[in-house]
């Protein structure tokens, strides 16, 4: 079996004295889409933040391309090829749409994603490229956030609750772009509360419950009962 692109091994995470993750293990292979589901507070966002370097971890708890990156600060993790689309979009409010995208490409990592390609993927953005990023609708802002992360040409894209606050029609629209992203060479981890969407998009699913992995498996093989039990706790 080939080495996974991302290998998370027995990861613990703390906020001060509060432990948010307990020995969480997870793997993402190249070209794979992995969904992480779970109730509010299960630790999904925390997991992504640890991988992205926003929360420091034990050095060898996270291996990327065989390199231990657990304690690497966030700005170096991007350079290695992991990009995070943060929860709640978090666009730069004093930058225009295009400037938000450009700053995503700050590092100049080589790859297929450039401004023109992003505008191909999200055509509505091209028309609003000079608008202040905050004047866009929720769905459009989500697209900018994804595009911004793609501009760093990541090997692994982390999407934190991209369906949050969006109408179902918009969510379907955003999810419809994911296959194009994967085909350009990025693997995905999507954190979702929308289980239906997550299961449709993912190859593998992990379910977190109170900071622990309660269920893991290929999306096609998991039953609704198993997921329910893992999601809410037996």
């Amino acid at each position: 079996m080939p080495e996974p692109l991302l290998d998370v091994r027995a990861l613990d995470a703390y906020y001060g004295d509060f432990q948010a993750l307990f020995r969480v293990s997870l793997r993402v292979a190249a070209g794979e889409v992995v969904a992480v589901i779970g109730a509010n507070g299960a630790g999904k966002s925390t997991l992504l933040k640890c991988i992205a370097g926003v929360i420091p971890s034990r050095r060898d708890a996270i291996l990327f391309d065989d390199e231990p990156i657990g304690d690497a600060p966030a700005h170096t993790v991007v350079a290695r090829g992991i990009a995070l689309v943060p929860e709640g979009r978090r666009l730069f409010s004093s930058l225009s749409v295009e400037e938000n995208l450009l700053i995503g490409g700050q590092l100049g990592r080589p790859g297929p994603w450039r401004l023109s390609r992003i505008y191909e993927l999200f055509p509505t953005l091209a028309a609003r490229r000079h608008a202040p990023s905050t004047s866009l609708s929720g769905g459009e802002q989500q697209m900018v956030a994804i595009g911004r992360a793609l501009m760093s040409n990541p090997k692994l894209l982390l999407c934190d609750e991209i369906s949050l606050g969006l109408a179902p029609v918009v969510v379907r629209d955003v999810y419809a772009r994911l296959p194009a992203i994967v085909s350009e060479g990025s693997s995905l981890i999507i954190v979702e509360q929308d289980i239906v969407q997550a299961l449709k998009a993912a190859d593998h699913v992990y379910c977190l419950q109170e900071g622990r992995v309660a269920l893991a498996g290929a999306a096609a093989t998991l039953t609704r009962e198993a997921i329910s039990a893992a999601y809410f706790g037996a």
């Binding site: 990009a83 004093s94 700053i103």
Partner: peptide
């Protein structure tokens, strides 16, 4: 300039600017 963009982004949001590869 890209330089100035980096300043403005960091001024807007110090945590997310790190996700762009900027060392605060």
């Amino acid at each position: 300039t890209a330089f100035g963009r980096a300043f403005r982004a960091t001024a807007d949001d110090q945590s997310v600017s790190q996700l762009m590869g900027l060392d605060n």
